[in-house]
Design a binder for these strands. Structure first.
Lengths: 207, 207
DNA sequence: TGTTTTTGGGACATTGATGTCTCACAATGA
DNA sequence: TCATTGTGAGACATCAATGTCCCAAAAACA
């Protein structure tokens, strides 16, 4: 969850890696607009054109290239940015505190809130593969494994299946809820509760 | 489920539409190899190259073009073929007979068996959109809605959520199971039972 | 206001996927 | 065996996405 902030291996190369530091307010805003549009568009179509993304960001294609020289750079930056957004949302859920079931409910709510970022990051395994192939995976994938295992130990979560499977289901159900909301099948405000309900009890009538 | 076999609107154009009829055994075999490879490859990467597909089918790229003049033709044919495969598998489950819960279990088992075809058809909504935009949607999407509604009426499935949502979950859980098996997270033989278990009861310990 | 920064659009060259065609070889079937 | 059918490899032309530049206009800033 928490990014390793230890200055263990500071950029081996002295290249100017820190464009997201403090740029003139305008540049920062443009940069964020592009990254947001990229995550949103690519979440729905991973083969989207740079022109598509530029249009969604309400920015000229040349401006996009000015910020991100090539497609891969944009991809990488979008991965990093999306990680930060997700990380922040998940951190606020404090999943290592309180009863597992309640922690999980907070986590799901947090995940639904950043649904498009999750869809971008995990909708296509290739995205993450390419990224972590280029860089050290200094971004720890947000993991709910410890929470799940804690819940299993306390007899709250099904101990008959692996924690990894439950985590897969967590992503799957959350993603499905986000998708259903995107296509109007679920009302925005009811997504989290429906996802929680189904995730916990499945589809059979409780009785 | 069952394709409308009524000769309502027979091909308005008299073009030679029926290549899959009876071709010399060899051609049929090659054709099926290409369609199978296309579904399998495209399920994992919808941006896959025709060269990729030809390679997976162990066929030259020119042979592929000989069978399917352009990419869209291949896409359409693969959709039709995958529908037939899924349809056949689902039909064998006889989901309109017997107790809903057992029917659903048969359905899930059938779906897991044709996981890659489902992943191809439903992994990217665009695939089906483009297809049904070109042709009359004379292919009825395999629907479990009636089964789900029957189950809800009998008090077996959760009546608090919509049948559409439950169907979305059905696809999502099945797909996740197929994916988990593909990456070795679940043993092949345990996929169906795990999917059924989670689909029915969610992830909480039953008690 | 004037100056600097940022932007959008257009004009390229480049690249990779696609689609077409030809030809020699292999497989099938009589 | 021979004739037909089906195939793979390669040479092309085409096309769309990409990446690079430049320049005038708009926006931000002092």
């Amino acid at each position: 969850m928490s990014a390793t902030r230890q200055p263990v291996s500071e950029e081996p190369e002295p290249d100017p890696r820190k464009p997201e530091a403090r740029e003139s307010g305008t540049r920062g805003r443009t940069r964020r607009a592009i990254l947001g549009a990229a995550a949103s568009v690519l979440a729905r179509d991973r083969a989207a054109t740079l022109a598509d993304i530029a249009e969604a960001a309400q920015v000229g294609r040349s401006t996009l290239h000015r910020y991100f020289p090539d497609r891969q750079e944009l991809l990488n930056a979008t991965v990093v940015d999306s990680f930060h957004v997700v990380e922040q949302s998940v951190a606020a859920a404090a999943i290592d505190q309180g009863p597992p079931l309640e922690a999980m409910r907070r986590l799901i709510t947090a995940m639904v809130d950043v649904g498009d970022r999750l869809a971008f990051l995990f909708g296509d395994p290739r995205v993450l593969e390419e990224f972590s192939a280029c860089f050290e995976p200094d971004l720890s994938v947000p993991t709910a494994i410890s929470l799940i295992e804690r819940g299993q130990a306390e007899g709250v979560f099904d101990p008959q299946v692996s924690a990894e499977w439950i985590q897969q289901m967590l992503y799957a159900v959350t993603y499905t809820g986000w998708e259903a909301a995107a296509k109007g099948l679920l009302p925005r405000h009811g997504v989290a509760s429906t996802v929680i309900r189904t995730f916990e009890n499945g589809v059979t009538a409780q009785g």
